[in-house]
Nucleic acid binder design. Structure first.
Lengths: 141, 141
DNA sequence: CCATCTGTAACTATACTGGTTACAGTTATG
DNA sequence: CATAACTGTAACCAGTATAGTTACAGATGG
């Protein structure tokens, strides 16, 4: 249970909200589709709310809806909203600075990390929630 | 200690081997630069060996050296050798198939996963170990 | 034979993720 | 106003991956 599936769940959640249109969707209902606990859904919704992708209403007949049309929500913004960490990590302890390679490698790896992150971001930026909805419908037919 | 830093360590290790030229390098020595235990180094070397990037010699005066020149070792081949898993994971339990969104979303996410993986691979394929060595030298000056 | 080194199994500590329970706070509606 | 129905979050548990460590079998050069 160590792999991070928050992005997957976030996309699933937002797709549910998109198909619901202007109605408030309850976390219990989404949890039923994602196959998990409502609290797990609310935790992710909390992050999506902070990123301005959704708006929530507390109280009776509350729930969550999209804050923007699906065509304006890129997968990149979803990825950033749930901030899954980096594609690869630097070594926690840090290299030995007495070694020439040790001294130089950290900067190189850090730059590379940023470049990969940027590359992933650009790829994800090519798709929006609207793209996903379209593909889900096709797959389901 | 949960983030995967094997790729970082692998690049560090291979850079060490590259700077050593044709000499056998001992895992103890590499461990000193990476700042970890020799066994951790040997575990990664084992994967790099399986991928054909390095060759090792057991016994006295044994050690490891590169199996190819640095210019022929792409960062992509290193990444694949240590197989860090995916950039994002699918939900372990799988979605509810009784829901239209649940039925369709898995395929979409799986396709996306592969596409991102490919994108990362292409980006990493643009660099070789030779590139890294060059940058390490620059950074260190 | 013996010192030296790799390869690998086994175990531990740590930390992250998701699952769950519990509860405070908010809000329609009768 | 009282109540039922939600969200938001804290707190805790369980499972698992990672790295660190010890230990030891096996190979190899001198």
């Amino acid at each position: 249970m160590a792999a991070n599936s928050q992005f997957s769940m976030a996309v699933h959640i937002l797709t549910m909200l998109a198909t619901a249109g202007d109605e408030n969707v309850k976390s219990d209902y989404i949890a039923g589709s994602v196959n998990t606990n409502p609290v797990v859904i609310r935790r992710i919704l909390s992050q999506l709310n902070a990123a301005g992708l959704v708006t929530s209403q507390t109280g009776a007949f509350g729930g969550t809806r999209l804050a923007k049309p699906p065509s304006e929500i890129t997968l990149c913004s979803i990825y950033k909203a749930v901030s899954c960490g980096e594609v690869f990590a630097l070594h926690a302890k840090g290299p030995n600075m007495d070694c020439p390679v040790g001294r130089g490698i950290e900067t190189v790896l850090c730059d590379l990390q940023k470049e990969i992150e940027k590359s992933v971001g650009e790829k994800l930026g090519q798709y929006t929630l609207a793209t996903v909805i379209e593909k889900v419908s096709v797959a389901h037919v």
